[in-house]
Design a protein around this nucleic acid. Structure first.
Lengths: 199, 199
DNA sequence: CCTACCGATCGGTAGG
DNA sequence: CCTACCGATCGGTAGG
């Protein structure tokens, strides 16, 4: 019993440490170029250790997406839930996202923007997991918009899905431009545009 | 002389055919996972043939970026130049871009959106080439906006760089969402947002 | 979890 | 432009 628990606790710590490296590596080079050997070497375990803990490549990729979602939720969603429903929560969500991207919570910027590329033309479980994560996030923004409309903090004729598309496009655009041009200016541009859209 | 010209003409045809495959492969999997061996096999030449024509990996990547720029210019920029300067040309540019993305001129959607990922955290000549291509495109949009302002087709207090950021973010957002969700709806959303921004 | 190993593919070169 | 080859790394497995 004690040895089993000890082994499980070590396994859990090891899993968490390896996933922390995995999400960073994937944010830098994409989810497909995340290699088992490189991840093992950087984590101080053997290749077969990585495979034993997470399974083969595709299961490793799925585990990495799940780990990234947890980090994302803790960095962006949970903090914003402290704000009251409505326009304040919507603003908190957008601001938390910009901080998450600008603060490089993942070494290579937004994990999902990087992970998407290798899979958005390749159907399968990994693409499905990424699509679900993005859909969840967009849905979260859209519900915050809807609550703001209900509270008369946004015009009654606002199209929530349309506004959610525009806002997330601004966030992703800031992330991409900041990375490529190594500049913080795109975040200021996104904030300006957001202020114009939702006051 | 004749044999030399014949060889050169064959070389040029071969180069063009190989680049046509290279830009498609890179748009699907990213510019780093474009492998010399795969490109050679799909083009019907040997690996050393690819290297002889384009040089080692980095030179191949630079050649691929240059080829993609040519395709992009021919698909988006040149057609839009037929429209008169000002708001009409701006609208033509944005519409041509959406058609370029939606029509999958590159098999994996916008080449530059896909190629960016592998390099936006990795300084070097390839990143520089991608950044220059994107800067060129943004500059083109910005100049079209400026000309529209000068013709009083957009408000005099319009911030051209800011509006260019917002418009290109909408284009890129539509491309990304369309690929991941395998849907045409994001293009409609982008068109709606563009119409609101520039009438 | 490890070592030791597998076949396949990577980028690249020698020699022609 | 080719064939033939190089060392390194890929994902993955056997056996413990």
């Amino acid at each position: 019993m004690t040895t089993t628990d000890g082994r499980r606790a070590r396994g859990a710590r090891s899993r968490a440490a390896i996933m922390r490296r995995a999400v960073d590596l994937a944010s830098l080079g994409g989810l497909e170029s995340l290699s088992i050997g490189e991840l093992a070497a950087e984590s101080g375990v053997s290749k077969s250790g990585v495979v034993a803990l997470f399974g083969a490549k595709e299961e490793l990729q799925l585990a990495t997406v799940a780990a990234a979602r947890e980090v994302f939720t803790a960095s962006v969603v949970t903090p914003a839930l402290a704000a009251p429903r409505g326009i304040l929560r919507l603003r908190a969500l957008l601001e938390a996202w910009l901080d998450y991207s600008e603060g490089r919570v993942f070494a290579g910027g937004c994990f999902f923007a990087a992970a998407r590329i290798d899979f958005d033309s390749r159907p399968g479980p990994v693409r499905d997991a990424l699509a679900e994560a993005l859909r969840d996030w967009h849905g979260f923004i859209e519900r915050a918009i809807t609550m703001a409309i209900e509270r008369d903090e946004l015009p009654g004729n606002t199209d929530a899905a349309q506004l959610a598309f525009e806002l997330t496009a601004l966030l992703d655009g800031a992330n991409a431009a900041s990375l490529l041009f190594d500049s913080a200016e795109p975040y200021a541009r996104a904030r300006t545009a957001i202020a114009r859209l939702i006051g």
